[in-house]
Write a protein that binds this DNA or RNA. Structure first.
Length: 291
DNA sequence: TCCCAGGCGAAAG
DNA sequence: CTTTCGCATGGG
C-alpha cells in the first residue's frame, strides 16, 4: 500500500464535498472516506492541514487526487466573485471549504443520467450495483473493489442486467449513451473543449436522457466549467424562495438567471445553494418527525 | 396511499 | 413556442 500526504492550502470540507450530490461512490469508513479517483481505489483522511491518501501498491498513488479535489482552487477569489448578497454569503460562510470536484466525465455522465427524478442514496445504490455487475474487479486489502465500467463495456451490456441495477426507465438511456460514446459519435474530450453553452447543447442534442440539467452537471462536476448552473428541484425551490419572493421560476429561466447573476463561477454558487437548501430541509424533516 | 426524488421526452396546448 | 404528463423505483 502507498501512503502519501497532500498539503491543503486552505480549509477543505472533505465530507460535505464528497457527499454533496456530485459524486456517488464515496463511503464513510470511520473518520475516513473510501472511494475512487481516476478509477483507482483510494482511502482519504483529513489530518490537520494535510490530506492522507492511501492507495494500492501498484496504482497511481496520490497522483490525480489534488486535481480531483480541486485543491488548488483559489477559494478566496471564488467567494469574492459569487458573494452577491447576504443569502449566498450566509451559505458560503456556513459551508466554507466545500469544493467542486473534477471527476471523470464518463462516470459523471452515467451517474447523472441515473439521477433524473431520483435521489442521492438511490443513485449511489444503482451506480454501485452497476459497478459490481460490469466494472473490472480490483483486489486491495481484504476486499474486492470494482472500477467504473467503460463506455465500451456498457455498450454491450444486457438491458435487463442494467435494469436489475434499479435504473428503471433510465437503463436504456445509459446503454444507448454508452454506445454513442464507445463508437466515438460523442467525444467527451472534444465536448470539454467547447464553450459551456455549446458543450451543453451538443450533449442535449446528441444523447437521449441528457437534458440541460444533466449536461450542466457533467460540465460542472467533471469538466471544470464553473459557469454551468444546473437547476434541479432544490435549486429551483431555493432560487424561487430567496430571489423571486416565492414566485414560480421555470428551470430554463432559473438557469439563465443564475448564470447572469452569479457570473463566471455561478456553478460554485449553485453548489452552495444546493447544499445549504438540502441540508436545511433534511434537518427540518428530522426535527419535525415524530408524533 | 400519496408524495417526492440533483429530469427528460413526448404529447398537448 | 410553452406547459403538462408518463415514466420505474424506493423511501418517507
Amino acid at each position: 500500500m502507498q501512503v502519501s500526504h497532500l498539503k491543503l492550502p486552505g480549509p477543505y470540507r472533505l465530507e460535505e464535498t464528497l457527499f454533496s450530490g456530485q459524486a456517488f461512490r464515496w463511503r464513510r469508513a470511520g473518520g475516513a472516506f473510501e472511494g475512487y479517483v481516476a478509477n483507482e481505489p483510494v482511502h482519504l483522511r483529513l489530518d490537520g492541514a494535510s490530506l492522507e491518501v492511501r492507495s494500492p501498491p501498484d496504482g497511481h498513488g496520490a497522483d490525480g487526487v489534488g486535481r480531483y479535489l480541486r485543491l488548488s482552487d483559489s477559494m478566496a477569489r471564488i467567494y469574492k466573485s459569487i458573494e452577491k448578497d447576504d443569502r449566498i454569503r450566509a451559505a458560503t460562510a456556513r459551508w466554507r471549504g466545500l469544493h467542486l470536484l473534477r471527476q471523470d466525465p464518463w462516470e459523471t455522465m452515467v451517474s447523472f443520467i441515473a439521477s433524473s427524478a431520483s435521489n442521492v442514496p438511490k443513485i449511489s445504490r444503482s451506480v454501485e450495483k452497476m459497478c459490481r455487475a460490469f466494472g473490472e474487479p480490483v483486489s486491495w486489502g481484504a476486499r474486492t473493489w470494482h472500477r467504473f465500467p467503460s463506455a465500451k463495456r456498457l455498450a454491450r451490456a444486457d438491458l435487463a442486467a442494467l435494469r436489475a441495477c434499479e435504473f428503471g426507465y433510465r437503463a436504456r438511456y445509459i446503454r444507448d449513451t454508452a454506445r454513442r460514446v464507445a463508437e466515438g459519435e460523442v467525444d467527451l474530450d472534444k465536448v470539454a473543449r467547447l464553450p459551456t453553452l455549446d458543450a451543453q447543447e451538443s450533449m442535449v442534442e446528441a444523447l437521449e436522457g441528457i437534458g440541460p440539467k444533466v449536461a450542466a452537471c457533467v460540465l460542472l462536476f467533471s469538466m471544470g466549467k464553473d459557469d454551468a448552473f444546473p437547476v434541479d428541484r432544490w435549486v429551483q425551490r431555493s432560487v424561487s424562495e430567496w430571489y423571486f419572493g416565492g414566485a414560480k421560476v421555470t428551470p430554463k429561466a432559473c438557469e439563465a438567471w443564475g448564470r447572469q447573476y452569479f457570473g463566471a463561477r455561478a456553478g460554485y454558487a449553485q453548489q452552495y445553494l444546493f447544499h445549504d437548501g438540502r441540508s436545511a430541509s433534511v434537518k427540518s424533516r428530522r426535527g419535525s418527525r415524530g408524533s
